[in-house]
Nucleic acid binder design. Structure first.
Lengths: 193, 193
DNA sequence: TCTATATAAGACATACGTGTATCATAGATG
DNA sequence: CATCTATGATACACGTATGTCTTATATAGA
């Protein structure tokens, strides 16, 4: 579908608006999936009309956010996930590396809540789950993850510790490095002394 | 404020309606925080007007759900959390014991999203976090939890594994016992073999 | 059976979110 | 400077959720 956009992103004004909108949207939707288009525009410091000039609908905005988040996560993971490398190392390094963009990563996991009626976005959600699941299964085959825990369980758990990491950064309690260390430690070793 | 209710809960009809409404509300709101009053009434199999006879507003419904969920969680935890008992045991037993009512427990964590404008509900949410934090601090003093992990981090992590447990039960992958075992194992021992 | 009341169904006013359109203005480009 | 265009502000139509109210029906309790 995607009708022609009347906006030229090479215009610095448009570029600034678009960036501000995407950031505001991620930020607001993460803490309140019901955030309205008005909220998002206001938080980005632009008019609501401008938001609609950049994204035809709320659904398209969410879809672009999903795509952008997927790209950000993939950019980090693709370089790590080479077949020769132990999967557990990919997960460990991945968690650490993803902390600076943990908001993007977690957004993908929230897609179901945010956009359960947006088929395109849900596809991205499932793709994300699937990629993680494959790495986890590889780690199981390599005997580096407890096989008595189901893959689905571990995928959820990875998202959880990533989310806790993001939350710690977001609330100003930790920097990305600390959050990454905590997340890896919690995921693999648990909280026992 | 709470204006006088025109409903007599001792009337079996009213009692059945109220129960159906509370259950339907928990169920729907957990999987879609935006569920409408119409949705909830329909899912409970009663008329929308009846919903408004039992709860003056959406906010009041959420508040009652929060209170009811808090009671359900507390009923489980209060019996375990005696000062003589090692805190780590309270947490372990607590997680296992709470799995059958994990939906109620998780609802408390969702309160922020569902009712971030409802001050009363948010108070209940913070109270829940605070009670958990106290037990965690006790566990640290008893050297049964890694002291290098912050209390806030651990509270969030407990939230998270409980959520993953609830999700596993809810999606039909596990029964409460399995979910409890997985959660405890993941929290204390991590996912390493 | 008779009375009280909880309920279903639906009309209604109100508020809010979405998406479209218009117009004057400020900023970018040449 | 002159032109192009992204923007802000605002009005509008439309759909949907909230909360109130009325009326007829069904069910509990005496």
């Amino acid at each position: 579908m995607s009708r022609k956009k009347s906006i030229n992103v090479s215009d610095p004004r448009a570029h600034r608006s678009r960036d501000a909108l995407l950031n505001a949207a991620i930020e607001l939707l993460l803490e309140n999936p019901r955030a309205s288009m008005s909220d998002i525009a206001a938080h980005a410091g632009v008019g609501r009309a401008t938001l609609y000039r950049h994204f035809e609908s709320r659904d398209e905005l969410v879809l672009e956010l999903a795509a952008e988040s997927m790209k950000a996560s993939e950019a980090v993971l693709k370089s790590l996930n080479v077949p020769e490398r132990p999967a557990v190392e990919v997960i460990t390094e991945g968690i650490r590396a993803i902390m600076p963009v943990a908001d993007r990563f977690h957004f993908l996991m929230l897609l179901w809540v945010i956009a359960s009626e947006n088929d395109e976005a849900i596809k991205i959600y499932y793709r994300q789950l699937d990629e993680l699941a494959q790495i986890v299964e590889r780690a199981k085959i390599e005997k580096s993850i407890n096989e008595s825990l189901s893959t689905d369980w571990i995928v959820m758990l990875i998202d959880s510790v990533t989310y806790v990491g993001w939350w710690s950064i977001h609330s100003g309690q930790m920097n990305p490095k600390q959050a990454g260390d905590h997340a890896v430690q919690s995921l693999f070793g648990g909280i026992s002394p």
